[in-house]
């Protein structure tokens, strides 16, 4: 049986004075699934993510969540670290807030998982953009979430770092299998990252197109040069272009 971790059922979000920002939009996440959300700027991707995280309520429609408090993690476009706290303390934060005793130990392990050994005591200002993003990712992973929401996490990074981090996320996914929603503007990144790519219309965003990427996760080497990858990138790009023209 397919188990749903979280779902949006025909949700709509209206902001006072701004009108509708999202919807009606539906999206169901199966356990352990990676979904990429692609759409024009302002179509409501971040809003959809906030709904899934239970940080905001829809104006109408329903949000279904089986992941409880503490089982959802969010990574924002910016690393969003506390500038006054060390990398270790930043990563330990979710555990400290949950009153967990071995917060520092687990935080150290999470930092190691994202390849940040030796940077434990560094403050965010002393980290490079890529390192800060890794720390942010470690903080999201430290609670062993069942639902991981990534809002354009690599937008500010260079191509090499983005690719390395994409593979890191796959490796992490392979070990604990959280359901992942990955928001991006980059079609190739979406096809590379996700088992399913969802394209949204310009704001207020609705479903425009959806496709499954039938290839193993984590991706085999050279996946980016495979015909399947190229073909899917072309399909998603075309769908995105069509959605934006409509």
């Amino acid at each position: 049986m397919i188990e749903t971790v979280a779902a949006l059922h025909a949700v709509q979000v209206d902001y006072a004075g701004r009108g509708r920002a999202l919807g009606p939009f539906s999206l169901a996440l199966e356990r352990g699934e990676i979904v990429a959300l692609v759409g024009p700027s302002g179509c409501g991707k971040s809003t959809a993510l906030r709904l899934l995280a239970d940080l905001e309520q829809p104006t109408c429609g329903e949000v279904e969540r089986t992941a409880g408090r503490g089982e959802t993690s969010v990574v924002f476009q910016a690393p969003t670290l506390m500038p006054w706290a060390s990398a270790l303390e930043n990563v330990a934060l979710p555990l400290r807030l949950a009153g967990q005793a071995d917060a520092v130990l687990s935080a150290g392990q999470a930092l190691a998982r994202v390849g940040l050994i030796g940077a434990e005591q560094a403050k965010p200002a002393q980290l490079s953009g890529g390192m800060a993003m890794r720390a942010s990712l470690a903080r999201a992973l430290v609670t062993e979430p069942r639902l991981l929401l990534l809002d354009e996490p690599f937008a500010a990074l260079d191509e090499i770092t983005r690719r390395a981090l994409a593979d890191d996320i796959h490796a992490i996914w392979a070990s604990s299998r959280p359901a992942i929603v990955f928001v991006t503007h980059n079609v190739e990144e979406a096809v590379y990252m996700a088992g399913r790519v969802v394209v949204m219309t310009p704001g207020p965003g609705r479903l425009a197109f959806e496709t499954r990427i039938e290839a193993p996760l984590p991706r085999p080497p050279q996946f980016r040069t495979s015909p399947l990858f190229r073909e899917q990138v072309e399909r998603v790009s075309a769908a995105l272009q069509q959605a934006m023209a409509a």
Binding site: A53, L55, G70, V74, L97, A98
Partner: peptide, 9 residues
Amino acid sequence: LERLFKLYG
């Protein structure tokens, strides 16, 4: 960061 704190209860 505020959202993050809210998320973690």
